[in-house]
């Protein structure tokens, strides 16, 4: 199990590096188009999922940022207007609570940013949940971990495969 743990962290680190570098990479440049490894669903990613979370300005009172990018696996193109659903155990509620869930859309650069209440450790780990479940591409559920519970942001990137 500890091996898997390491692997997932490594994946997360890579994800963090990717999303950190994303603003400088100019995702839209067609000349650099190349296939990317699709993001696979993480274990436990769909736990306490409530399909159809409403698109909201922010979840609850905010103060914490969930960010990331959404791209197409076949050519790496950023995907605009994609609906990403987000939920977590926060200072304002349990994962199962409807008010802990919300959705947002990616911008023209394929970037999404959602403000939400501070995520707090639950079931032994400080973690968030994200879903791409809109049908055009294959469904992906993510469950990224926070390196420290005092972090005030978390990032998770999606590389989607056409359905």
């Amino acid at each position: 199990m500890s091996k898997m743990h390491t692997t997932r962290r490594t994946v997360l680190r890579k994800g963090a590096i990717l999303s950190l570098s994303a603003p400088f990479l100019s995702l839209g440049s067609g000349a650099a188009a190349q296939a990317l490894t699709p993001t696979t669903t993480m274990r436990g990613g769909s736990n306490n999922y409530r399909p159809g979370a409403p698109i909201v300005e922010r979840i609850g009172g905010g103060g914490f940022w969930m960010t990331g990018t959404v791209r197409r696996a076949s050519d790496g193109a950023p995907l605009a207007g994609q609906r990403i659903q987000i939920w977590a155990h926060t200072t304002e509620g349990h994962e199962r609570d409807a008010h802990s869930h919300g959705a947002t859309l990616t911008d023209a650069q394929g970037v999404y940013r959602m403000e939400m209440p501070q995520i707090v450790p639950a079931f032994g780990q400080a973690h968030g949940h994200l879903a791409y479940d809109s049908g055009d591409y294959q469904t992906v559920f993510l469950r990224p971990l926070m390196a420290s519970p005092t972090q005030t942001s978390l990032s998770a990137d999606f590389v989607l495969v056409e359905a």
């Binding site: 199990m1 898997m4 436990g44 994962e95």
Partner: peptide
């Protein structure tokens, strides 16, 4: 009590499918 709090997390743990390394 954990089951009542979050059934899918406990089902994952009991079936050894949990992403958390402490569960098994």
């Amino acid at each position: 009590g954990l089951w009542l709090t979050s059934p899918p997390d406990v089902i994952d743990a009991l079936t050894f499918k949990s992403p958390t390394p402490f569960a098994p």
